[in-house]
Design a protein around this nucleic acid. Structure first.
Lengths: 350, 350
DNA sequence: TTGTAGGCGTTATCAT
DNA sequence: ATGATAACGCCTACAA
């Protein structure tokens, strides 16, 4: 960095002087160009460009009584990192906010189990006009608090506690898994198992329900063909091994996450089976791992989620959408791990 | 979200009225408590707490002519995501900034190859007082531009072009790899190879130099025992396979990244070799993958990097540090992939 | 120790 | 079409 300089940035007054108009006219050129004579407009605009003038955000905020920023709690799940999904979501959100003339202000709560003080600070100091919530959970204290304090918010993830709340967007895990199952069935697989998380997680249960629905619809249902595992690799390997014992070769597995898929992938390797040849594999969340392992996976449309969240923040919940928030379907990215089942007769040549 | 309310937030005047003092006294209570009579202080403080008053950030910024925020370009490498390192760095930076009364303002450049307009906007509108740079590269236009415009900045990553610039912090890749080699040698490994990136990347070359130095120091040097690969898994697998052919069982490999390690890990599995038993493995960047695969890896001290970056921003480059920025050593996290070489005689029982 | 005055840069309102 | 005035909330300097 450099010595903090003395050179004051140019203000609206500098522009006004340079263009020989009042500062109000400069303001009009920026905010209501239609009220300014074309000739004046051009002259002032030229000075604005020449001097590189931009209104001070602080002065605007003060005058307009809005910060022009949305707060985003990082680490609201308490993992100390965003993870592959929120990582990308943050970028989409930041870009989308900029397109709408706003900023994103990330913050962390000292105690992720009791985050409200952090929200309160930002509201009280008027740093954020509202919030984007992520990692919503059952008994999440945030929506109720924000409602009570009349603070705008929109959630990436369902607001579970109150069906009356519609200011959320989520990815439709059930329909995603459903699509994956249909895809695998279309590739010729007839035994399609599910490797998911332990019961009780809303996201996990949602995804599993897609497997139940799709296999039932297709007449391929078998409640035995599933296993549950936490997000640790050893656990995933154990679960995948058990599931593979049940399913046998020529079957397919849909995994609730890429970590689970990594476990399954490892077991396949240990057994000399090749994904997409001996066993079909599709996982959720199109992360680095899925890409690296060339696994078919369900890609979350995070750009659209971010767009919708910003829209909700800007306009409030859509009254045409009274029954609930918006569910966006993930997109299946087909890679080599779900090649047509016919391929499995051909042995791999590596 | 809720209807944007009419309830105006409490201001310093509300507090002044409630406590029957002038607004100036309230200001003093907050900014110079020592100049206020204890009794008055308590009374005013009580009202501040009761009303939940916090100074408006916009008004403060306007008056103090500083935004109280540091800009952070997301996606400056153009990948569309932060990645495992910047993900955590962002959280550390956000937390550290909050401790110092500032915020982090993330932003993206429309064209990550020509990011300066985005920086210029933030400076001109006084949204950010300075910037944290990441993904610094050779011929990076940002440091020079920021210097020229007297905008404070500090980089996570060396500023390569100008050795006179000392406002950066980086992780010492060379010494990290060196430590890894010494660790492996201490575990009894005698053939220690290196799986790195193609020549020409500053970060990669730096890490490789640690391998050269350590193996030379230990008398274990063999320039043949290395392979180069891009960050794609197939490429990593090919390179790892070739390296393993050279090294044979009982050797160890240090990898420049976790993706490369994933490739090596895969090849081991395919050959029925177990990491930490038949082949020692250490990788850089202690990411999810390293954790999931139980690989020993070099953990970057991102909390300290963030702390130092914020310190640099607050105070300017340290004049006691005229020779360059600060290199922090990564910490070796030992997991099962670098168990003592003696273990390799015992066959795995799984 | 406390209070008063002025201004940071902008925009809305109301004149001209 | 353009300009003057006031106000957003706070803080620094100075006055009492």
């Amino acid at each position: 960095m450099t010595s903090s300089s003395s050179a004051r940035r140019t203000t609206i007054i500098d522009v006004a002087r340079a263009a020989s108009v009042s500062r109000q006219t400069v303001s009009n050129v920026i905010n209501s160009p239609e009220r300014v004579a074309p000739e004046t407009l051009a002259r002032v605009q030229a000075e604005i460009d020449r001097l590189g003038f931009r209104p001070s955000r602080a002065a605007q905020s003060l005058k307009q009584e809005r910060a022009g920023a949305w707060g985003l709690e990082l680490n609201s799940a308490g993992f100390g990192r965003l993870g592959a999904i929120l990582d990308i979501f943050l970028i989409e959100l930041t870009t989308g906010a900029a397109e709408r003339g706003s900023h994103v202000v990330p913050f962390t709560a000292a105690d992720s189990a009791a985050p409200l003080p952090a929200y309160e600070r930002l509201v009280a100091s008027r740093v954020a006009d509202g919030f984007v919530l992520t990692d919503t959970r059952r008994d999440d204290p945030r929506p109720a608090w924000l409602e009570a304090h009349h603070v705008p918010y929109a959630a990436f993830g369902r607001v579970w506690d109150d069906p009356g709340i519609t200011s959320w967007v989520d990815v439709d895990g059930a329909s995603g898994v459903e699509a994956a199952v249909h895809h695998l069935a279309g590739q010729g697989y007839e035994r399609i198992g599910y490797l998911g998380w332990p019961e009780g997680s809303p996201v996990g249960d949602d995804r599993r329900s897609g497997w139940v629905r799709a296999t039932t619809d297709l007449g391929l249902a078998n409640p035995e063909w599933q296993a549950r595992s936490t997000q640790s690799l050893p656990s995933a390997c154990r679960a995948a091994a058990g599931l593979l014992d049940l399913l046998g070769r020529g079957a397919a597995i849909v995994c609730a996450s890429d970590t689970l898929a990594l476990g399954a992938w490892r077991v396949l390797l240990e057994r000399g089976l090749e994904p997409g040849v001996d066993i079909g594999l599709v996982c959720f969340d199109d992360t680095d791992i899925a890409e690296a392992l060339d696994l078919s996976s369900l890609h979350q449309p995070l750009d659209r989620v971010a767009d919708r969240v910003l829209h909700l923040l800007a306009t409030g919940p859509d009254p045409r959408d009274p029954a609930g928030g918006l569910l966006l379907p993930p997109e299946l990215v087909v890679r080599s791990s779900s090649k047509p089942a016919g391929n499995r007769t051909t042995r791999k040549e590596k």
